[in-house]
Every structure is written in C-alpha cells, then in structure tokens.
Design a binder for these strands. Structure first.
Lengths: 145, 145
DNA sequence: TTACTCTACTTGCATTATGCAAGTAATCCG
DNA sequence: CGGATTACTTGCATAATGCAAGTAGAGTAA
C-alpha cells in the first residue's frame, strides 16, 4: 500500500480516507472484521478474494498502526491472535454500509437483498446499531472465554 | 489497478465497491469530479496528490468503462476533453460524504470544519442535495457554452 | 502561413508492490 | 513425545507504478 507520509496525506479528509480505504485489501479486511465477524489471521485468509499470507500480515500491521485494529492474544488459545475492531473502525461502519447500498444498486449480480438498501434508507441509525450489536456480540463472546 | 474479473468481483457488494474505490487514484478522481468540480485531464493532473500522466489516463479509462465518468469533447475548445460524472458516480456521493465525515473525526489536521460533520448528521439528504446542485451547476455551465 | 503553445495523451525504463510457494517458530492436542 | 495448527517470514518471478520524455492535433500570435 502507499505509505502514509503525514505531510502529504493529512489535511484533506478524502485524502485521509483514500490513504486507508483506497487499498483493496485494507478495505476488504475492514469488511471482514466489521461485517463478517472475522477476527483471526486464518479467518481473514479464508475470505473468497484470496489474500496472500505476506499481504495479509502487512495489511494487518498497517491497520493496527492506523489504529483500526487491536491485536490481542486469543483468549481461547495462546498460540492464536485476535484482531479486534477499534472505535475508529466501528465509526467507519456508516461509510461502509453506504458503499454497500451503492454497490447493491449497481452490481447486477449482487448477493445482497434489495431490502437491505431500503431498510438502511428508512432507518440508518437502527441499521448501524444492529451491526454494532453484532460486533459487540462477537467480541464479548471471544473475550469472555 | 486490480483487474475487474467479473466472475471474481461480482456478487458481494463490498467486494464490488472495493474493486472501484479500493484504488487510491480512482477514489481521488471521484472526489475531484464529485466534490471539487474538476472535469478535465489538466485539472485532475493538478491535484495536490500528484498523479502521473500514464496512471491518470489509465484510471480515467477505467472509470469510463465502469460507467462512472462520461468522456465528451469540451464545448469550449475542441482540443480539450471533459469527463462528466454519471448518475452512478453521483449516487456514490452519500458514501463519499460518509467517508469524509469519518475522516474529519480522525484526521487531526483535517482541513474540513467540524460543522461539516454536524450538518450532515442533522440533514444528510440536504447536504447531499447541496453537492448535487453544485455538480449540476458546473456541468450545465460547461455544456451551455 | 509559420511557428509556438497547449491539451491529452503514449512510450520506455527503473523502482516498487504483489502473488505464490516454501520455510519457520511457537504453541496445542492426543 | 510427535504431529498438527497458527501466525507469520523469506525468496523470487511477475505486475503495477512513477518519472521523464515524446507525440499528435487543435488554438493562437506574428
């Protein structure tokens, strides 16, 4: 990914966003962690897009540096690691969902049901709250072990 | 940019979005055309991020192929070309603005005023309508020449 | 009409990032 | 104790990028 030179990449908010989301793999990892409940290296590796191991390690480190992911030992197994979404990542949910809504409109073979865009349009806060609750559920279940 | 293999990249809406927005330069070009009123090759080239000429040509062609930009001769000068945002691009505005809101929250040295996020939070549709009107103004002024 | 400029590109090449396969170190499980 | 699992790292071929230079066509001033 493009390196994030502070002097070059800060200032313009869109440029700031582009520095993070403007990378296919970071974007898809945020999807996995925010929408699909994935938390471990192995789960991320299993996504259908087929990220390779070196790129995955690189992007996880990047997202941790950016304060989007918190790397912690897996409570279930000391040899495993969990990557939890931070508040900064959670706060990205509305943008991510907005992009999903847009994509469902233009990707002819989308897997998402049409009702999804509708429910977000009618009650955006409620939709976001639902996803947040899912994230809480996954994280609390993991941490409570 | 990553090639967009139909068989691989369709189905999941987030993956679809990642195929377009998950490229720094496509993302920034969408910003320029949707938010900064830029329409010509030279204007895009002038953005502070410093895109190089070959990449710019490549991404403009990509975005045209994707149906995000419409390439037309410049009414003011036959030797010049305009790239207009399509409906598909305009419909991306809510997602783009959501990302700006998120970025203004986390980029400490953001240029955007705090009031921006507030006004979008209070009246998202109105904020989007304002940007749409700006796009209309730029395009109609250009085409009316 | 000629020469110069401006615009939108293309081309070549060195550098960087990516994808793939293989390897490794630290657990974990029976 | 020994094989499996997990989270990586390393090496290498290939692809994408950045930079500088070149080109074709229309516009402009002398």
């Amino acid at each position: 990914m493009a390196k994030l030179e502070k002097s070059e990449w800060n200032g313009c908010p869109t440029r700031y966003a582009a520095g993070i989301v403007g990378d296919k793999w970071c974007f898809l990892l945020l999807r996995d962690v925010l929408l699909h409940g994935k938390r471990t290296y192995r789960e991320f590796l299993g996504s259908p897009e087929g990220i390779s191991t070196n790129i995955l390690a690189n992007r996880l480190a990047t997202l941790e540096t950016l304060g989007m992911l918190a790397r912690e030992p897996d409570p279930r197994k000391a040899s495993s690691v969990c990557y939890f979404p931070t508040k900064k990542a959670r706060d990205f949910l509305p943008a991510l969902i907005s992009m999903m809504v847009w994509a469902t409109q233009y990707d002819e073979v989308t897997e998402a049901p049409a009702s999804f865009a509708k429910s977000f349009g009618e009650d955006p806060k409620g939709t976001i709250a639902w996803y947040e609750a899912e994230i809480d559920r996954v994280d609390q279940e993991l941490r409570a072990t």
